[in-house]
């Protein structure tokens, strides 16, 4: 069995390596990728959009439709996880565990018993409870603010350096997921609830499509950001630059919210009561 697998992998490798011979040579100026529109982007992107990072200019301006529907695909992924996994009917818990914070005594409340509210004295803990890990909690507390700041930097600095909405949004979502792992799911959901996540995921796509629609209302075509110059006191070139920033913010909001939403559904098996 192992030999069959090895042979098939070796055969596939050979086919792939053989097919690289059909590629155009490295840096070939006549290759299909560099004959049609690439020259135009390279020569005119900075003059058109005032964005030094050509990747961002192509991604959010010249190929704006592509990115709009990529963002929609991310939203659809979140929705698919939601519809597949979410269970609205809460399973009747056998018992719930509450921990007295000062003494560390754990109370087991049987089904139907009177439950203490989460307060200064009692905190609800997961049924597969693991002792509070001070090292991980403190380290994540220390790191999360810097991570979030860095995420905002990546979003805002996509014009000038590698980065942009998708990358920054993923980093931002990962900070909330880190919070959920280091503490528990409920304490993360107290800050970013499921409802907020779903609303933000939709709002991100709405921001993107809304900027496109605003361009139509101002007399341009869909996602033609230079039309925004009529609304604000920008030159058309700067309007395209700022339009790209607005679109990136929409992408970041959608991506980060979808990351958090998918994590909540996956980690709690759709029940949103107890996480990993």
């Amino acid at each position: 069995m192992k030999s069959i697998a090895l042979t098939s992998v070796a055969l596939l490798c050979a086919v792939l390596i053989y097919s690289t011979m059909g590629f155009p040579a490295w840096g070939d100026s006549d290759s299909p990728a560099s004959t049609h529109v690439s020259d135009y982007y390279i020569e005119n992107a900075v003059n058109d959009t005032a964005v030094p990072n050509l990747v961002t200019a192509v991604l959010a301006d010249y190929r704006g439709y592509d990115t709009l529907f990529e963002t929609t695909v991310v939203l659809i992924a979140g929705l698919a996880c939601f519809f597949l996994l979410r269970r609205f009917k809460p399973r009747q818990p056998q018992h719930r565990l509450y921990r007295h914070i000062d003494t560390g005594i754990t109370l087991i409340i049987e089904q139907g018993g009177k439950e203490p509210t989460d307060s200064e004295e009692f905190v609800r803990i997961d049924s597969r409870w693991v002792p509070y890990d001070l090292v991980i909690q403190q380290a994540s507390c220390l790191v999360i603010p810097f991570l979030q700041l860095f995420a905002l930097y990546v979003i805002a600095h996509g014009h000038h350096s590698p980065g942009g909405g998708f990358q920054g949004g993923v980093i931002f979502g990962a900070t909330i997921i880190l919070m959920a792992i280091a503490n528990d799911l409920r304490s993360a959901a107290r800050r970013v609830s499921e409802r907020l996540g779903a609303l933000m995921a939709s709002a991100g796509v709405l921001i993107y499509a809304g900027i496109g629609a605003l361009c139509i209302l101002l007399g341009g075509s869909f996602l033609d950001y230079s039309a925004l110059s009529k609304l604000f006191a920008f030159t058309p070139v700067m309007a395209r630059s700022h339009g790209i920033l607005g679109v990136e913010i929409g992408v970041a909001v959608a991506v980060s919210a979808v990351m958090i939403w998918i994590y909540y559904n996956l980690a709690s098996a759709g029940r949103h009561e107890e996480g990993l």
């Binding site: 693991v130 890990d133 991980i136 380290a139 994540s140 790191v143």
Partner: peptide
């Protein structure tokens, strides 16, 4: 600095998970 904070924490968490 950030690696010095996070890398030992990650190792600690992994060792802890192994014990558990």
């Amino acid at each position: 600095v950030f690696i010095f904070i996070t890398s030992p924490t990650a190792t600690h968490a992994i060792a802890d998970a192994g014990m558990r």
